[in-house]
Structure formats: C-alpha cells, structure tokens
Design a binder for these strands. Structure first.
Length: 687
DNA sequence: CTGACTCGTGTTTTT
DNA sequence: CACGAGTCAG
C-alpha cells in the first residue's frame, strides 16, 4: 500500500496544485496535451482519498466513454492506496444528457414529469417537428418556410443559448427573420405535441433538469446528492448547462471545471467560450490553475500549432511548451488531387507501420464526414482495415430507425413520431390514416383497439400481423432479443418494398438483434441508443476485438481529447477548412480556426497536413474546381512546415500499378449514396 | 387519401 | 445528385 503522496509522483507542480486544491471553486485551464485527463483522474482519486463518498461525486464529461475511462483510471489509483471495494465505480459519471435522464427518472414525478417518458434523438425530433410543420405550412402554400432541420436548430438554439427567438434569428438565422411569427407558433405546437407524446428531446432533458433544480423541494434533494461536481470540456458547454452547474452548486463549493478556451468547437450547438471566461466572475473565490506544459507533441509540432492559434482575434492565455525537442517538423503536402491525397496517406501510414507504429496509433482527420469517402475506397481496395468515427451512425440509418420505431411505440404508445414512422411504412397507410390509428390508441385498451380497424385493401395483408406483434411487444414477456427478432421478421419484407440495397440493410437488422442481446431491458436499450449510440460509423457496438489492427478515420470533432503518434489532416483547403458553410461571420471563422488547432494538436510525433489542389466539390457534371490552401496556413506559418508536392509522377505510377481507378470511383459513388441516402431518416430515402 | 411522378435547390460538425 | 415539395391519377 502506498501513501497519498505517491499519488502525486508523476505530476508537475501545476497539476499537483489542481489535484489537491480544497473545496473552493476551481478552474483548470488545460491546454492541449497538458495532462488534463490525468489531472482530473487524480483529483477524483484524491477527493475519494480525502474521505469524500464516491457516490457523492458527479463527473460530467462529453461522452460516456470518457467518463468510464476516467472512473476506471481513478479506481486503479485508489486501489494503490489500498482501496479494495472499487469505490471509484460508485462515482456518478456521464454526459449532461445521460445524467439528466437518470435524475429525471428518479425525481421527475415530483415536477409532473412521468417516469416512463421516451427520448427523441435528433432525427426523431426532426420528424416530429416536420409533422407539426406541415400543419402550419399547409395553410400557406407556395411559401418557402425553413426546413425541419433548420426549424429544430433554431428551436434548439433558443433553448440552449437561453435566447429569445427574435435574437436567435437576427444573430444566426438572418434569412429566416421574416418567419418569426410562424416559427413561434410552430415551436409552441411542437412543445405541445412533445408533451402529448410523453417524450423528451435532447433539449428537454437539460431543460427539465434545470427546472427540477429550480423547484424548491426537488432542487434541494438533487443538490443534496453531491458534494463534488467536476465538469470536463467546460469550453464546450452552453449557457443552459452553465446554469445547471450553477444550480447544482451556487456557491461553487466542491466545483471543479476543466477546459481549454482555445479548443471550443461546439458553437453550432450553442456552446459558448464565454462560460469559461465568466467562471471566475460567477464564482468570485475561484482559483485558476493553468496547465501549459505539453507532454504530447514534439516542440516542432507544438510551435506550428501555437502559431496557428495565435492568429485568433481573441487572445488566449496560454502558450504551450514542451521538453520534447526531438522529432521532425510537421509537413504540408500539396497533392495533385483527391486520389493523389489518398495515395499519399496510404503510403505514409504503411511507411510508419514499417517503422513500428501500429495502425491504431495513426489517424486521418477531416472536417466533414464525406471528406474521407475517396480514401475509404482506396483503403478498402488495398485491404487496409480502418474504423471511422463521426458522421452517420448505425442507429441513424433509416432502416434501423424504422425497426426501433416499433419498439419505441410499444414502450410508449403516445410517441407520435414513432407511431407515424411505423405506420406509414405499411403500403396504403399515409399520414392521415396513421394519425387516425394513433388517435384510436388514446382511448385505452392498447393495441387491441386496432383489431377492429378495417384497413384499405393494400394494407390488409399487413394488418393483423402488426396488431399481433404490437400486442406481443406490449406484454413485454419475451426477452429483448426475441422482441427484436419478432419485429425484424415482420419488418424485413417491408425493406424490400421500400429501399434499395435491401440485402445490406437486412444484415444491419440482424446486427440490431446482437446489440439487443447486450441489454436486459427495452427502456434501457432505447435510452442508451438515443443518448450514447455506438460511436463508430457503420459498425454496431458489438465488437470485442479490442486489439485488432485498424487505422482511425475521424472527423475533427470526434477526435477531441484523443491523440495519435501520427496524424494526417486531409482536405486542408479553404472551403473545407474552414468549411464554406461556416464562414458567414467572424465568430464562425474563429471557431474553424480553433477546430484546425484541435486537429494539429492531436499529433505526438508526426503531423501531415494535406491539401489536394484539384477537388470535386460536387459529384455532378462539372466536378473540378481548384482548391486553395487553407487560410489558416499563410506563408509566414507555412515556413514552420516542410512543404512537399506529392506530384503527378508518383500519382501516375500509383495509378498504373493499380489500374483500377474505375473500380475505386464506383466504390466512392456507392459510399456517397450510402452516405446521403441511408442517413436522412424518414421516408425521404425510400424509393 | 395515397403513391408515383416532376422539378427546384442545397450540400458540416453532435448530445 | 438526391431531397423535399408540389402535382395529379386512381
């Protein structure tokens, strides 16, 4: 057994100060790679060693994976101090939304929230919004009203940024200002329908949590649960979340937040870097600890990253430094086109692997999910295993959402979005019929009410089996995998009718059955899939092959907090980084700069930034336009990179060797179709 | 009322 | 190019 002191052995003075800080409010400003996670982990362990009951510690993180990892590491630390009861596992850890869910199931009834609510993920919420939207737009044809996605985004920003509709429109959606009145009406109706549906969307989870905290009695009880609250990635919280934190600990006692103002990249989700700047104002006795020694990257990489972030109009407090003087300069690679870029990536990673760096220690990062399609095809062709993070996920595919709609409706027959989705799958049933059928359920008696229904001829052969299925699911006697199996048997023939590529989709449905095997209970599965879906794209949760070799492909957003030996940033062309869509105002551009900074600081030893000179923005007729190097690497900063042209010559040679460019482009086309096609939920992707 | 068809438009990041 | 809205036949 070791002493408390040895806990601190590995830490530098700043980290130690943070770890052993008392109960006064603490703000840790931790630059990229400065051992932020280690510090937080040590602090949790230190608090427990001080005698804090671990079940009275709340650790809020950005993903559940991050929470689980920290809790596990803290557990390992206190085990060294002689803890045998695995006390750390009793820490409350998770995302804001998952924690809200847990608390609301427990305390919701006291604020008149039923405990059996279901959760709408973004796609479900959009579907519901669309339903309401047609009610409003139906009255005034021939007008261009914002789409469902835009409507939900506006609504969500109002909630999360705690702003009035008018201000949100003026600031972020100027092209929608003319619709303010209708949008207000729409949102009012949306909220009503949501309540009737006994469903909460992502925003509601936070909103109700906050409301519960404001309630005299319930608020006190929730506050009374925790002695310490620790918040990771504080720069990516929004105003509503900051308010929740404030309600949890109004005087800041036991409150620790960790963040890096230079890595705030979730503005589109109403996150505001002001939270981190305002923290000391809100809690006047705050201690600020800055972590500036970087342990991750070589100095050459760090200097380049520092130069990039120094372009920000906003001044950040830190200048990161590293003892690691070894290592090569970062490289900027101008590639002829996208295929050249893919070839460069493949050659580089294979070279690195020869040098002893496993594929898993290498990552390719990009701004938008579809930026990797060409590379994916190339990797597939060369049999290089990879795993992709970010972008369209398993549970977001239309056929998976369909399958889940059956289960959701069984769980909550008032769930309008699920019901509409499920019923309109049937031939001959459209929105009008579906609404009527759902209304029949309100009068009680469950799905038996449907057995009296005389369906249209086209629907007839589907009807009685559906009623049987739904009654069976409602009984809930079958184990979950059996329920999923029964649903799949019913639904699979519809896949042939509704979608292209039915074979692949049916394979995914089988996977769903495997996923179901990991959950004992239907509600838990539905909640989990909504709040914490499997992160890797196209592959469901069930892969125990942890030591498998694979290259990581990731959006920059999904790469947050992670690190690799070798990082290749692709498509570093203006228009992609910064993204065209995000250059409307200075704030957006500044966030793109921080995003680029996040990408660069993921690298430990090697950093390659690639820019294809020719790039097809669209898949349409005139595919090529000329890409300019990202504005974030002006000449002065480019001097810190080794600049390389990955020329036509290598590319031609590579092309001849492999001579199956057509094959690759076919794969890309398929990938592209799958990307756009399967993703959008709802009937849109149906034939 | 549903579903097949045509035509204009817009295309990121995620809990 | 494919979504989503609008049109029209059954």
């Amino acid at each position: 057994m070791e002493g408390l002191e040895s806990l601190m052995d590995q830490l530098n003075p700043a980290q130690r100060a943070a770890v052993s800080h008392g109960m006064e409010p603490l703000l840790i400003v931790a630059g990229a790679g400065t051992g932020k996670t280690a510090t937080l982990v040590h602090r949790v362990a230190w608090l427990i060693a001080q005698g804090i009951d671990p079940s009275r510690i709340l650790l809020l993180t950005f993903t559940r994976r991050a929470a689980a990892e920290m809790v596990q590491r803290a557990g390992a630390l206190i085990a060294r101090l002689g803890d045998t009861k695995n006390a750390a596992s009793r820490v409350w850890g998770g995302t804001f939304h998952a924690t809200a869910n847990r608390l609301l199931r427990q305390f919701g009834r006291r604020i008149e929230l039923p405990q059996d609510f279901t959760i709408l993920d973004q796609g479900d919420a959009e579907d519901l919004m669309n339903l309401v939207r047609t009610e409003i737009v139906g009255r005034q044809k021939h007008t261009r009203f914002p789409r469902k996605g835009a409507c939900l985004a506006i609504y969500s920003r109002c909630v999360n940024a705690r702003m009035q509709l008018g201000d949100v429109l003026a600031n972020d959606y100027p092209w929608c200002v003319d619709w303010e009145e209708q949008l207000a009406e729409l949102f009012d109706l949306y909220v009503r329908r949501k309540q009737e549906s006994n469903a909460l969307d992502y925003d509601d989870l936070l909103l109700y949590w906050n409301a519960a905290l404001k309630d005299q009695e319930v608020g006190g009880r929730i506050r009374g649960l925790f002695d310490c609250v620790l918040v990771d990635e504080y720069q990516d919280t929004n105003l509503l979340q900051a308010e929740i934190i404030y309600q949890l600990s109004p005087d800041g006692r036991g409150l620790t937040v960790v963040g890096d103002d230079a890595q705030s990249i979730y503005r589109f989700r109403a996150a505001t870097v002001e939270n981190i700047f305002d923290f000391p104002k809100r809690y006047p006795n705050t201690t600020i600890v800055a972590l500036e020694q970087n342990y991750r990257s070589s100095q050459a990489i760090l200097s380049a990253a520092n130069a990039v972030i120094a372009q920000a109009a906003r001044r950040y407090r830190k200048e990161l430094w590293s003892h690691r003087t070894e290592g090569c300069r970062p490289r900027f690679v101008a590639c002829a086109d996208e295929h050249g870029q893919s070839n460069y990536v493949v050659e580089t990673i294979l070279e690195r692997r020869e040098a002893g760096v496993e594929l898993r220690q290498q990552a390719v990062l990009f701004r938008a999910s579809h930026h990797s399609l060409v590379l994916e095809a190339e990797l597939a062709r060369r049999n290089i295993p990879f795993r992709k993070y970010g972008g369209l996920r398993f549970v977001e595919m239309a056929h998976i959402k369909d399958l889940l709609a059956f289960l959701r409706l069984a769980e909550n027959p008032r769930d309008l979005a699920a019901g509409m989705r499920m019923l309109t799958l049937l031939p001959g049933v459209g929105p009008v019929q579906a609404r009527k059928l759902l209304a029949m359920l309100d009068s009680g008696g469950g799905f038996s009410a449907w057995s009296k229904h005389r369906p249209a001829p086209a629907t007839r052969s589907w009807w009685s089996d559906l009623v049987d299925l739904m009654r069976r699911l409602t009984l809930g006697k079958d184990p979950l995998p059996v329920q999923v199996h029964a649903t799949r048997e019913y639904y699979a023939p519809l896949v042939d009718l509704l979608y292209d590529n039915p074979m692949a989709r049916k394979k995914d449905l089988e996977q769903m059955e495997v996923v179901a095997g990991q959950y004992g209970n239907r509600q838990r599965m539905l909640v989990d899939l909504a709040l914490d879906p499997p992160t890797a794209t196209q592959e469901p949760a069930s892969r125990p092959h942890l030591d498998e070799e694979y290259l990581v492909l990731s959006t920059i957003h999904s790469a947050k907090g992670l690190e690799w030996d070798t990082v290749l940033v692709i498509h570093a062309a203006d228009g992609n980084i910064p993204a065209d869509m995000a250059t409307r105002n200075e704030e957006e551009i500044e966030e793109e700069l921080r995003l680029f900074y996040v990408a660069l600081t993921r690298a430990k030893n090697q950093l390659h930034v690639c820019c294809p000179l020719r790039y097809h923005f669209r898949t349409g007729a005139d595919p090529h336009s000329y890409g300019q190097r990202t504005r974030f690497l002006p000449d002065g900063i480019l001097k810190m990179f080794d600049v390389l042209a990955f020329g036509e010559e290598q590319e031609r040679r590579a092309g001849e060797e492999n001579c199956s460019d057509r094959n690759v482009s076919r794969q890309v086309r398929q990938g592209l179709r799958r990307f756009w096609n399967a993703g959008k939920s709802g009937r849109t992707s149906r034939r």
